[in-house]
């Protein structure tokens, strides 16, 4: 299990990286944390000619609050997000999701940009981005652009990124104080990719749910925004009939697939179970943005 030979360049700027990508197209691959790519290289499932190491480009890492937006640089590690007071304060959903990503050693190296760019629908960050209506910041040869996460993920492992693009940051709108979040997933062993998971945000008020956002992990080719279930819950009290309607709506919202251990039907069922649990948990607390100290 040794990778095929490739050349390697460590770049100091996005422009330099873009120049390599422009020259070699898909014969070059970007590497940052490498937590997914390295395994595929070792297995020879991927054999690029050139690895472009972007991990030390200055300015692509870090978490900044700017007005009502938190910007997370693409090279920020899962661990940094997990430990960030800024994230805990303004984006509690991310703080809830981060510890559920793989294991400590992986979280120390893996980056949010790599995870979102790889776009594994079973990964946590893509669903969080969709639930939080984040914006993906991309730089390409023709300049920069911003793409809503809700349109960024196009199909299985397919995004708005072209082979000559670099994901540089993700912008998250600060979660308002009254809005709570829950991140739940079902994985057979800790740190495994989830069979199914969800990110739920809502503002509960007098027993009613408002501003509901619901995105699923592992329930389709992309992180799935459950629009009909969101509509079924919006402005309502989660009584049994409402929950039943929301669960039924998931049949339209999700397109779960089958894998080695879990059928599509089971995923669909589990998505409904998680919805019930998430709503219950949200009403009994959930995570709220901290009041500013």
């Amino acid at each position: 299990m040794k990778p095929s030979a490739f050349d390697y360049v460590r770049v100091a700027s996005v422009e330099e990286a873009l120049a390599h990508l422009t020259e070699l197209g898909d014969r070059a691959r970007l590497i940052a944390g490498g937590q997914t790519l390295m395994a595929t290289l070792n297995m020879r499932l991927s054999a690029p000619e050139l690895l472009v190491d972007i991990s030390r480009i200055p300015g692509l890492s870090g978490i900044r609050l700017n007005g009502s937006t938190v910007t997370i640089g693409a090279l920020t590690t899962h661990r940094e997000i997990e430990r960030s007071p800024l994230v805990a304060q303004h984006l509690p959903l991310l703080a809830q999701a981060a510890p559920q990503i793989a294991h400590a050693a992986i979280r120390n190296s893996g980056t949010i940009g790599g995870s979102v760019a790889f776009a594994d629908p079973a990964a946590e960050w893509p669903a969080c981005c969709v639930a939080l209506d984040a914006t993906i910041v991309i730089q390409g040869p023709a300049g920069g652009r911003r793409v809503r996460a809700r349109t960024f993920f196009r199909n299985l492992y397919e995004t708005d990124l072209t082979p000559t693009d670099i994901l540089v940051a993700i912008e998250f709108p600060v979660t308002p104080l009254a809005r709570r979040s829950v991140f739940l997933e079902l994985s057979r062993r800790r740190g495994d990719y989830a069979i199914v998971g969800l990110a739920l945000l809502a503002r509960p008020a007098e027993g009613l749910l408002h501003e509901v956002a619901l995105a699923y992990v592992g329930a389709g080719p992309v992180p799935m925004l459950a629009r009909q279930a969101m509509a079924a819950l919006e402005g309502r009290a989660p009584a049994a009939s409402v929950m039943q309607a929301a669960r039924a709506a998931l049949a339209h919202d999700l397109q779960p697939g089958s894998d080695l251990y879990t059928s599509a039907a089971t995923r669909q069922h589990l998505a409904g179970v998680l919805l019930d649990r998430a709503v219950t948990q949200l009403l009994s607390g959930g995570a709220a943005p901290h009041a500013i100290a």
């Binding site: 057979r188 069979i195 879990t262 089971t266």
Partner: peptide, 13 residues
């Protein structure tokens, strides 16, 4: 005894 098999035994899926 996977979750899938247990759910099937329970008639849940």
């Amino acid at each position: 005894f996977t979750p899938e098999r247990i759910l099937a035994a329970l008639g849940r899926v």
